[in-house]
């Protein structure tokens, strides 16, 4: 189904979602303008990951509709927990190549040059190809994750908590990368985060999840706000 407006890449219409008696979303609606960087924020348990699963088609048990623009090519960067020390070694090449096959199937002829190219897009060179992706630093690993998402030549990327296990110094570099991808490749970027301070400077618009609804806010509303979630509610001018 087409989005009604040409420059709207995603419309979320009247979403109702509940886990038993716990209503996560009730008539939640919002739209995302193509080419924007959009933040989805909210406290723990507000439904950020649930919303991501609904948007990405991983969760189909909800009421309402998700409408993407016809020519959308979706990719996503899942949340990664650094606390998992039992990960088996997987080279960057294997990590990216395996996803390429998952996306394109066996008809796609992958070769190293394609993977080197997407790595270059995220500021990594070919020496990373043979390194274990799980022994990289948080910032490097997140770049590899983004490189993997770029394989699909997407125009919409959803990142779930991209700063989890990324050190403070690497955060700005990561956001510079996302802004670069947004501006040079015209990729709409949706960032899901519980940390408003980290994303307020890069987002064109922010959707705040609260009390089973989605509130459309402007980043400037948060700049003068308190860091606590409670205070954010009052500082958010709806």
């Amino acid at each position: 189904m087409d989005a009604k407006t040409n420059n709207i890449i995603l419309q979320v219409n009247n979403i109702y979602k509940a886990f038993g008696k716990n209503v996560v979303f009730k008539n939640a609606s919002f739209s995302v303008v193509a080419g924007d960087i959009v933040g989805i924020i909210g406290p723990n348990g507000s439904g950020k990951s649930t919303l991501a699963n609904i948007i990405l088609g991983f969760d189909s048990e909800y009421q309402g509709e998700i409408v993407f623009n016809n020519d959308v090519r979706i990719a996503y960067v899942p949340q990664f927990s650094n606390s998992d020390k039992y990960m088996l070694p997987l080279s960057v090449y294997e990590f990216i190549r395996s996803t390429a096959n998952a996306y394109y199937g066996l008809k796609d002829v992958m070769n190293k040059s394609v993977i080197i190219k997407v790595l270059q897009h995220v500021g990594l060179d070919k020496k990373y190809l043979e390194q274990n992706v799980y022994s990289l630093s948080g910032g490097e690993r997140q770049r590899v994750f983004i490189a993997r998402a770029l394989l699909n030549n997407p125009n919409f990327i959803l990142l779930d908590e991209p700063l989890a296990s990324v050190d403070y110094m690497s955060r700005n570099e990561l956001y510079s990368l996302l802004q670069h991808l947004n501006q040079t490749h015209n990729i709409t970027i949706m960032i899901i985060s519980h940390d408003i301070d980290s994303i307020v400077n890069v987002c064109d618009s922010i959707f705040y999840l609260d009390k089973a609804s989605v509130k459309d806010c402007k980043p400037k509303d948060f700049l003068k706000g308190s860091k606590t979630t409670q205070a954010l509610k009052y500082n958010c001018k709806i």
Binding site: F58, E94, S98, T99, A100, N101, A102
Partner: peptide
């Protein structure tokens, strides 16, 4: 034949592709 596709599904958590059952 399916080495790389299999690698994508045995990662933990398995990589999921939006709107695809592959």
């Amino acid at each position: 034949v399916f080495w790389y596709p299999l690698l994508s599904v045995v990662q933990s958590p398995a990589y999921r592709v939006p709107y695809s059952r592959r």
